[in-house]
Design a protein around this nucleic acid. Structure first.
Lengths: 208, 208
DNA sequence: TATTGTTCTGACAGTTACTGCCACTCTAAT
DNA sequence: ATTAGAGTGGCAGTAACTGTCAGAACAATA
């Protein structure tokens, strides 16, 4: 696939860089687990570092801001879904592929934990902002993914907007999923996705 | 119109509340102007309060976080556009109404200043996050606006998604507008909006 | 195995962002 | 004029960061 994994160092990925990515993921995951366990209110960096066993100074070497600690975890989820998406048969209708990978994703198979996570992180303005930012930032990534699937130029206006629209479908679905106990994330994503025009995903070059 | 103005106090709006709204707007506008003038790097709350003539303590009574100081200004812009939108003739195609109000809005009539503002605020993660959050928060408002225009239930899945999709069109357009000197915001919004399915805006009840 | 150069880590000090508290001022109604 | 309620600013305190530096860990050589 042409798209670079999110969050990797663009320069030479040596052993150290790989190790750093590993610990980054571990720290991020541990932090999310801690937050789900203890909530977001009154959580200090000291609390987080006590839990993960690193010093505060090192924490800020991994994460520029306290709230950024959840970001690698979220990004990893995006990458997993995107990888699944690229592994779908290429003759499958693209909307179906998208819905399919989301119905097999972690939040669909573990709705209770996912909803809990959404509510906890959404209860804090800072973490909510990072979640949002992570989704917006992944638009570039998804743009590459969609374009490569359709054989189109990822810089075309259509692909850029298609990626944003698709992620909007996901975001809106998350919101109602987090709000309502008996809303299925995958089903809601499907409903939203199918409200988008098919023209967005026509795999023909020279299309606007 | 059914939608409440953004950011107003839900309870009785007496003289004090009105006055507070006024100063809130003035402070916010002055802050944005200061930021455009001086950039976002190394700007402290002390700088902002020196410029607006209030104490730091009072600053944090108006704005919960430093970056929130730009929010009322952004929200006011949204409200103005939405008000224009509701004033359009109701037999006009809704996409045309939307594009029309954006081509008469401040960023379209003053592209240089608008681009400058976008770049300045986008250069800082904190302010960028608030901008993003403001757009997302205004989705509820636009949902009411669109629903009232179409005579539909603002809580229907279709309206919720339509509002989000429309604002995504605006956001993506802003991005390319801010990036490219010779991109027209209104034109790009038009292109994006017209990539959305017309089914999203069919003014018939009982439509999903 | 020893050594050398680079990166990682943690401690410390310092600045900025924010909050609770209190005294004072201003305003709107009596 | 008075008084109650809200707005304001000063002060002290905590949490979020940042620069600097010394030591630890580690990879690549000899």
């Amino acid at each position: 696939m042409t798209a670079q994994p999110l969050g990797t160092v663009p320069t030479s990925a040596n052993t150290r860089a790989l190790s750093r990515q590993g610990t980054l993921q571990e720290l991020s995951q541990a932090t999310v687990e801690y937050l789900i366990e203890h909530g977001t209110a009154d959580v200090t960096v000291k609390d987080l570092t006590r839990h993960t066993g690193i010093s505060e100074r090192t924490f800020f070497r991994y994460f520029p801001r306290k709230e950024d600690a959840i970001r690698p975890f979220l990004m990893a989820g995006t990458e997993r879904v995107a990888a699944e998406f690229l592994a779908r048969p290429s003759d499958e209708p693209i909307k179906d592929s998208f819905v399919a990978v989301w119905s097999k994703s972690w939040p669909s198979t573990h709705p209770e934990e996912a909803r809990r996570m959404y509510r906890v992180l959404g209860s804090d303005r800072g973490f909510q902002a990072v979640w949002l930012q992570a989704m917006i930032d992944s638009e570039d990534y998804w743009c590459e993914v969609l374009a490569s699937r359709l054989g189109l130029d990822p810089r075309s206006k259509r692909m850029v907007f298609a990626a944003a629209a698709v992620l909007t479908a996901v975001r809106v679905a998350w919101r109602s999923f987090g709000h309502d106990e008996d809303v299925s994330l995958a089903t809601t994503i499907a409903i939203n996705i199918h409200m988008l025009s098919d023209d967005l995903f026509v795999p023909i070059r020279n299309n606007p």
